[in-house]
């Protein structure tokens, strides 16, 4: 018991608050201003109106610290380096782009710009691209393309009338005066005729994109006529073009093509009207319209209808031998020989 008591007493003595310790704690708790320290710290500067105005001026401009030049320059440089690295890594052969002129109007040729793309062509165009994208501007002729679907090459064929977009397939694009025809052999192809929504073509399907300008349609009409296509198609092309209000020279050519198509379609009354309009319009094709008018008028009503036109041709020194004969017959200078059935009097 006494031993324990002694221990407690010793502990109490050891932990007792000495006057010195009490003074230290009290000083800490009171924290009265210390004049000596204050005297030292008075050397420190505070705010001043000059600097305040400068900071306020900068704040009005709202300079963001993260946009200051010192920070922006290294950040921009880092971004540029990162972008360059990304391009180099992601497109290792992007620098090795190709650009080939495809020019073989009469014979078939082949071009293989990358492993993934094979181009076979007869015609004229241009092939450009990289290992990721390929672009063909096709002018005239036929181009056949085979594209490895695994390679994920983005291929586009442009013609004046169509845009053909594909990522892996075999297909053919043929372009002539009639327009652009796309046919698919394998895979799927998205075709966008100018001014129309895109259409997806499946194998064995084909789509033609017609020219959509008056001169283009004039070319199509002439090409159809030369190819012996039905006059109704030629007429459709010519009339579509005339609906586009073409310039006078093109309109004149279109009226002539339409007239020829009407004659070919045996729509003679309409042809006669078209010839009259063409002749009345003037222009450098007027002689053609006059000849056609003379011929159609002769067939329709013989001398009664054709004589005025024949006289016009004679007056303008445009009359040919057969027309001269007909005019002479009408005016009684010689017997009429090839009168139309309506004028041939019975015995």
């Amino acid at each position: 018991m006494s031993v324990e008591r002694e221990r407690w007493d010793r502990l109490r003595e050891m932990t007792a608050a000495t006057p010195d310790a009490v003074r230290r704690v009290a000083a800490r708790l009171r924290s009265p201003p210390d004049p000596e320290v204050r005297g030292l710290l008075d050397l420190l500067p505070g705010s001043d109106p000059f600097t305040e105005r400068r900071v306020q001026g900068r704040l009005v401009a709202r300079n963001r610290p993260w946009l200051s030049l010192a920070r922006a320059l290294p950040a921009t440089a880092l971004l540029a380096v990162a972008a360059l690295l990304a391009v180099l890594i992601l497109q290792p052969t992007a620098r090795d782009g190709y650009d080939h002129l495809l020019d073989s109007p009469t014979t078939w040729r082949e071009e293989r710009p990358t492993e993934a793309l094979a181009v076979s062509y007869q015609g004229t165009g241009r092939l450009r691209g990289t290992w990721r994208t390929a672009e063909i501007e096709w002018r005239v002729g036929t181009v056949q393309l085979a594209l490895d679907p695994e390679a994920q090459v983005d291929l586009t064929v442009h013609t004046p009338e169509a845009k053909v977009h594909v990522t892996g397939t075999r297909f053919e694009v043929a372009r002539d005066a009639r327009g652009t025809a796309v046919s698919v052999l394998e895979g799927r192809v998205e075709v966008e005729c100018q001014g129309s929504p895109a259409v997806t073509l499946v194998p064995d399907a084909a789509l033609s994109c017609l020219p959509n300008t008056a001169p283009g349609l004039l070319g199509r009409a002439r090409a159809l006529a030369a190819a012996g296509q039905p006059p109704s198609e030629v007429l459709a092309a010519a009339e579509s073009a005339l609906a586009l209000s073409p310039d006078p020279a093109v309109a004149e050519e279109l009226r002539l093509v339409r007239l020829e198509a009407l004659v070919a379609a045996d729509r003679l009354r309409e042809a006669l009207a078209a010839a009259r309009i063409g002749a009345a319009a003037g222009g450098h094709r007027r002689p053609d319209f006059l000849h056609a008018l003379a011929r159609l008028a002769w067939d329709e009503g013989g001398c009664r209808s054709a004589a005025p036109v024949l006289r016009d041709l004679a007056a303008e020194d445009l009359i040919d031998d057969m027309e001269r004969e007909r005019l002479d017959g009408c005016e009684g200078r010689r017997p009429a020989t090839d009168l139309p059935p309506s004028e041939q009097a019975g015995p």
């Binding site: 420190l44 500067p45 505070g46 705010s47 001043d48 600097t51 305040e52 900071v55 306020q56 704040l59």
Partner: peptide, 15 residues
């Protein structure tokens, strides 16, 4: 707000 606090902030920054 800025006008009132700028002197205090500037003094803190200096000291």
């Amino acid at each position: 707000l800025v006008g009132h606090w700028l002197p205090t902030v500037l003094a803190w920054c200096r000291r």
